[in-house]
């Protein structure tokens, strides 16, 4: 960086920090509002609530049947994570190692679901899943969620696989390993960090994936984020604090996994999904 100490440059730097500071202040203000409200006995027209309580958590837990919702959420999320790894990693390996006719077309096929927003392809997808009788239950939700996550795993894994020396695989081949053995004994251990990172990102994205789950879920296959949407949508039926308590539970669920994921990946990787 080239140092610049003139007044105009300092003012410009200050303006930049002011914008980012203002943004973060409001972001934390928003989160703090939810957390404060979830512990509030009554909070109307004052800076802080009249008193503090934790009872909203137990009432939200019962009212929204959070135990069921959480267990459904994790079943769906782990199935999505497992299946997208199972389908995505071998495909990424093939794409990283082989050049075949039509490869560009295949790459385009994997890019499109990441570029087209979920609500756009979600409506025809939900229609097909309803016709097939899969929507409204867990299998439909899992299938719909796999549409963006399989390509995501592939695109994250390709550069990771490309940097592994092909000589290691060649040596294994020389000693008589077939593709399956090569995968289990050579590639899986080498790829483990990359797979872990990709799958953690899938996990974080799937917990927060609203649109696809919303369009395909039935009453027994709602994930936490969809249940939260319905609760906010029907605001007035339940106490605000109860909904806020549910939101805090959702935040904790998501952020715990985000923190775990951030030990293995760079924050920019969460958005930089499809470069070029």
């Amino acid at each position: 960086m080239v140092k610049d100490n003139r007044l105009s440059a300092r003012l410009w730097a200050f303006a930049n920090w002011a914008v980012i500071g203002f943004f973060i202040l409001n972001l934390f203000g928003m989160i703090a509002t939810v957390v404060t409200s979830s512990f509030a006995t009554r909070w109307l027209g004052t800076w802080l609530p009249a008193g503090w309580t934790t009872r909203w958590y137990s009432s939200a837990w019962d009212e929204f049947q959070l135990y069921d919702i959480l267990s459904v959420t994790f079943q769906i999320v782990f199935l999505v994570v497992f299946l997208s790894g199972l389908i995505g990693v071998p495909a990424a390996y093939a794409l990283a190692r082989r050049d075949f006719p039509g490869k560009k077309l295949v790459m385009l096929l994997f890019l499109l679901p990441l570029l087209v927003p979920p609500i756009t392809f979600g409506i025809p997808l939900a229609t097909v899943l309803y016709r097939a009788g899969l929507a409204g239950q867990m299998s439909g939700v899992v299938l719909a969620n796999l549409v963006p996550t399989v390509p995501f795993v592939i695109l994250v894994m390709i550069p990771f696989i490309e940097q592994i020396d092909t000589k290691i695989e060649a040596a294994a081949r020389v000693f008589g390993a077939n593709t399956f053995k090569l995968f289990i004994y050579i590639l899986l251990p080498l790829l483990a960090p990359g797979i872990l990172a990709a799958l953690l990102l899938v996990l974080v994205r799937t917990i927060a994936m609203f649109e696809l789950t919303f369009l395909t879920a039935g009453p027994t296959s709602q994930t936490l984020v969809v249940a939260l949407y319905y609760a906010v949508f029907a605001a007035g039926v339940r106490a605000v604090q109860s909904i806020d308590a549910m939101a805090v539970i959702y935040m904790v669920t998501t952020l715990v996994w985000l923190l775990i994921a951030l030990r293995f990946v760079n924050p920019t990787q969460i958005v930089a999904r499809a470069k070029r």
Partner: peptide, 12 residues
């Protein structure tokens, strides 16, 4: 910090 709102998603 900036990745937090993306992770939380639009509903929250």
């Amino acid at each position: 910090i900036l990745v937090i709102p993306i992770t939380l998603g639009t509903v929250l």
